Simulated assay, not measured.
Amino acid sequence: MKAILCTELGGPEKLVFGEVTLPPPGPNEVRIKVAAAGVNFPDTLQIQGKYQFKATPPFTPGAEVSGVITAVGAKVGKFAVGDRVATLIPIGGYAEEVNAHADGVLKLPDDFDLVEAAGFTLVYGTTIHALKQRGNLKPGETLLVLGAAGGVGLAAIQIGKLMGARVIAAASSAEKLELCRAQGADEVIDYSKESLKEAVKKLTKGQGADVIYDPVGGELAQDCFSAINWNGRYLVVGFAAGGIPEIAMNRLLLKGAAALGVFWGAFIVREAALNAENFAQLFAWHAEGRLKPFISKTYPLADAAQAMLDMQARKVTGKAVLIP
């Protein structure tokens, strides 16, 4: 089958499009014919050897796929050939087929588009967990979303509004902020042109944001600690800016605030029942037409390197997906 191969650690330009052999699924696995594969920021780190989960070359990157089951292992009872599914896997997603452990596979509603599904599982699963279980976001509170035009950012805008929050979207260009408004943001901040902390204070009449959703990290995190409300919650989602910020403990102390880590990958293993509840809610919102993944661009599988380069250059809004 065709797949993308990382034969040596480095940038996307080192990736190879070639042939690989996929073994039969194990007793607890299913084989999935990939309809689409999500392109995510951790993928760009993994091929460089900088991600928390280390893979040894040669390997196929890609953690998020959707598709149709073509074979099931001997011990798998809850899935059948022909089921439409989405899943997260450690590696292997940038390929025509994958094997996935059945425990991590999610059966999709019949009306859920498979291309949209490749841009759904990771960002929406992460975000509802962040806002619900970690941030305890309440109706009427103010939610500040950084990197708001990216995949997790747009998911945070949509879910934040559905949970009853006032959403302030922060991004780096007028074009991105226009998209954020179209996705439901109440207010926007262009942090390439104005101080994030001053803009948040102005929009909240000096109070600050109740919940801050930060997948960016870097220098902007320090502004967040100055723009958080009393009893505020700062959610550590990721570090797309590259730098891992140091937490200003004194600012958290003075605001009675908390910094909370969001590690959805561990949550789905440790608290599977809660994760299932989260997805039941997400699917209900989707069926009602109140939530919809924004897929900004699709790429042929062979162009995976270009998709990654575009993501690194922050040219991707919403989600980008690969189509085998």
Rank of each mutant, 00 (worst) to 15 (best):
G150W: 09
K161Y: 14
A63N: 02
G104C: 15
N99V: 15
E97Q: 15
D214P: 09
N229G: 02
R270G: 01
H286N: 14
L45S: 00
A240K: 07
G62Y: 09
T317H: 14
G242A: 05
E96K: 14
K138F: 10
L137Q: 08
Q158K: 04
D113N: 11
S192Y: 09
Q222N: 01
F53T: 01
V167L: 07
A241N: 13
F267P: 00
A182M: 11
G140P: 04
L162R: 08
F41N: 01
K197T: 08
A156G: 15
Y234I: 06
G256N: 15
F59L: 02
V115K: 08
A155D: 05
P25Q: 10
P58G: 07
P42E: 03
I69D: 03
T87W: 08
F59A: 00
N250F: 12
N229A: 15
F267V: 01
N28R: 04
E141K: 14
R166A: 04
V316H: 13
V34N: 04
L137P: 05
A302P: 10
D214T: 09
L301T: 08
E288I: 09
P61E: 04
A63F: 02
F53N: 01
G140T: 05
R84C: 05
I323D: 02
L108P: 02
A284F: 13
E194C: 04
G261T: 13
G184Y: 14
R134A: 14
P215W: 05
A102E: 06
F112Y: 15
L252T: 07
E175D: 13
I4S: 10
A95S: 05
P58S: 08
A257C: 15
G135D: 03
S226Q: 14
L146N: 06
Q52D: 02
F112D: 10
D103I: 09
A307N: 07
E194T: 05
